[in-house]
Design a binder for these strands. Structure first.
Lengths: 206, 206
DNA sequence: ACGCTAACGGACGCCCCCGTCCGTTTGGCT
DNA sequence: AGCCAAACGGACGGGGGCGTCCGTTAGCGT
């Protein structure tokens, strides 16, 4: 059971909560979601019980820890959508999101494997729709290849997640180059051959 | 210590060895290298001790289990190199290798994460050199973008590994589409902007 | 048919992670 | 200053994977 009535945490409890979130952010970013809960606790200087009291499950902890990053994702998408040139906006989205995922290992995992059955993280549906609109405009403008489907973006993000490297720097460099290649692949071109059929990677909500 | 002198296995031992390899192939393919050794043993109908006696380490087991697949990789590369049109050959290599990795989850893991410190698996160096030659020819022919580097191929394979899906079919479909996009990205084009710098993903042997 | 030894596999001890309980500490209010 | 409950954290039991030991089984050569 979780504490119910107080709703006002004691100062030390609040402090611990914050230190736990910091530790979680750091460790998730560096090592992914695989890190043991106790490691996070140790790193935050608290006992395991305290950690579990604040965040009964890793899922909850991760959701809270990544709240900022997910907001950042939404901001990026909004920026892209705001760009008067939809193609440039789409490129920006791809580049920025890839970089974000490259810098934060846990984010990519949380974002895509998405904790199978995670609740709608930070308005995913809204974001998806926004990107879909952006893509349509880029298509209409003749910059985005006409056989593009939204699943291709998921495909690219999943693929980006597959790029792992020892150092974060290498990771980011590689991810940037990958984004460049991806953009080239998506660019409308008179010479391109038809693509193999797309796969349904995510169930598009009705 | 490993058995030394006999060099000729008893019939039942040989039989078990084969069943273990079969089980390993099946499980590695379906679930990746993460499967517990005991699971492989159970699936092969032998005790853990027997498994360990035949293959003292998971590394050894995987190497043996993937011998065929790695040979297949080399064959694909050889086929690609044999094609009179180097660009078509390179495309074939990309498509086939991506598909192979999509069908066999363990292979991708073994191939790239490459058991950090694994011995030269099935003549990796030779294969790498062959592909490098193929790429150079494709570049000279003006079909492959001139700023391509070999690390881009690694990048693509790593990225392909990042594509996961519940069903193998979806996985393969997605991987095929990804390969198509990758090829489009690598195609020489008058309109393409310069790419971000490449990352050193593998230490190229001298 | 018989024995010898290669080969087997159940069982063990080790370690790591998980989630929880309960005795102890300490912040905050009077 | 003193109380009390909120908050803490060490310690526990459970589960799972790993690699190994040793008593038992069964191929194979005579």
């Amino acid at each position: 059971m979780i504490d119910r009535l107080p709703h006002t945490l004691r100062s030390d409890a609040l402090d611990n909560r914050e230190r736990i979130l910091d530790a979680a952010r750091a460790l998730f970013s560096a090592d992914g979601l695989g890190v043991p809960m106790r490691e996070i606790a140790r790193c935050a200087g608290v006992g395991p019980a305290t950690l579990y009291r604040h965040f009964p499950t890793k899922q909850v902890l991760a959701t809270e820890a990544f709240a900022d990053q997910l907001r950042a994702c939404r901001t990026i998408v909004d920026q892209g959508c705001a760009d008067p040139d939809p193609w440039r906006g789409l490129c920006l989205v791809i580049e920025k999101i890839c970089e974000l995922h490259a810098r934060d290992r846990g984010l990519g995992e949380a974002f895509l494997t998405a904790f199978p059955g995670a609740p709608d993280v930070a308005g995913r549906e809204y974001t998806v729709k926004a990107v879909a609109g952006l893509a349509q405009r880029a298509k209409d403008a003749g910059h985005l290849r006409s056989d593009f489907v939204l699943d291709d973006l998921i495909l690219i993000l999943m693929a980006n997640k597959g790029i792992h490297s020892r150092s974060t720097d290498t990771q980011v460099t590689a991810s940037r180059r990958f984004a460049g290649l991806a953009i080239q692949a998506l660019k409308a071109s008179p010479q391109h051959a038809p693509l193999p059929p797309a796969a349904r990677l995510v169930s598009t909500p009705s």
